[in-house]
Amino acid sequence: MSSGPLLELKDVHKSFGPKQVLKGVNLDVSPGKSLVVLGGSGSGKSVMLKNALGLMTPDQGQILFDGDDVTHDQGKTREAMRARIGMLFQSAALFDSLTVWENIAFRLLNSDGLKRKEAKERAVESLKQVRLGSDVADLTPAEISGGMQKRVGLARAIVSKPELIFFDEPTTGLDPITADAINDLIVEQTKALGAAAISITHDMASARKIADEIAMLFEGKIIWRGPASEIDHSGNDHVDQFVHGRADGPIQPAL
């Protein structure tokens, strides 16, 4: 592994028709570090994440993974990159035609060619790490609660021991207690793997808990970045308004 950043976005632009969503995003995360990107509704957080993952291609700019330009990678090289990355989707995005354990072991079964017995053992082990018992392994995603789905999504993201994990609004739609438990699990599991993490959220409690560093995305650009401990003394009006959740200030509420 190179000593530079694990993932780097350089001057990334993305538009949809006339609407410019990303207007030159520069961002990087070092191995083992947790970066949280804050941003309001419609600030382009999800689009940024999809570009970083290669689910969208930037109109302009570069994505570097472990020093290699992966902006326009396709096929095998793209899959090789994704094999080193885990992703927890906002809605967990579990496959509802598969059982919980088949969801967790999806990559092990379909890409890594593990036998079903071995894959199931790995999946149950991963379930244990997110504090779920082996009794849920044979249920379908529709049979478990939203909080449990998030845990299963996390188990799926960590099962193949990735170097980088993306978290898309990991606490959205959860009650504060469940959200806190998910935050704890995220910190615990990324630390245990020594993985880097990029999370996007608008939940300040979550950001404070899981971030080493915080960046703020506003109108398609990163307008502030600093250590998590400085978030209350950023000296930036936009960040202050967001941190304190005020409707008045430089950021107009997205109504």
């Binding site: 999809k50 689910l55 899959e79 994704r82 885990g86 992703m87 995005a93 579990l94 999806f106 890409s111």
Partner: peptide
């Protein structure tokens, strides 16, 4: 339904091509 609940994106991140799978 898979598209709008991000399951197709999830497939891609798990290295499965939706055209094949």
């Amino acid at each position: 339904a898979m598209r709008v609940t991000e399951q197709i994106d999830a497939l891609k991140t798990l290295s499965a091509n939706p055209f094949r799978y």
